[in-house]
Amino acid sequence: MINNSEILLRIRGLEKIYSDDGGTETPALRGVSFDIRKGEFLAIMGPSGSGKSTLLHILGFLDRPSGGSYIFENKEMNSYNNDELAQLRNKKFGFIFQAFNLLARSSVMENVKLPLAYADVPEAKQTPIAMKAIDAVGLSHRVYHESSKLSGGEKQRVAIARALVNDPEVIFADEPTGNLDSKSGGQVMEFIDKLHNQGHTIILITHETYTAEYAERIIKLKDGLIESDEKVSSRHHAEFKK
């Protein structure tokens, strides 16, 4: 049995129903329950439309569930208001998206500083902290480049630097290698794996098996329900190692 104190987040019967203006309702999650331990590396897999992104958004406090319960660090998500959620996202979570989502006309430095600015870190301290994060993803030579002029792999590494700059508890990655070739994809996965080894909890969406193999545990979704939830016995990812 898992020790309760190690549990970082717990969802029970989580539901999400999207309703559009026309009144049609799309159930994206239909009662999902699991726990995630602190420091765990979880991969979420499943066919397109199975609710992976929806789940990740709720876990990352980007969206609210329609039903069920979500307890993060022993506190029910619904007890927070939107601004409190924003602050928690800022301090506890880091996000990596498939589409990178950088501020295109801003430099690498400005992009990585963004979470620090919203955390009210004093100006003078922002640059050294951001520089460390940029260094960690090997982009020290691109600090003041405009982010739109970087390659896809470099962009995603900027996003990783941005995600880790506030030293978050959890890093969420929604198909971070989806727009990348296998070489830069492998590089990105290496950085994510490093973050895991440093103690960050990782929640990764992927539909590529070789990416999922970095994880310690794989949850498969289908039609908004959990199809399987298994530990990965042999984590092998040697094929990406240089």
Binding site: G60, L62, R89, N90, P115, Y118
Partner: peptide, 16 residues
């Protein structure tokens, strides 16, 4: 819209 979403994701409040 995307910029606003990104800012909110990394911690911007409604007031920000």
């Amino acid at each position: 819209t995307r910029e606003i979403g990104l800012r909110k994701a990394v911690g911007a409040t409604t007031g920000d």
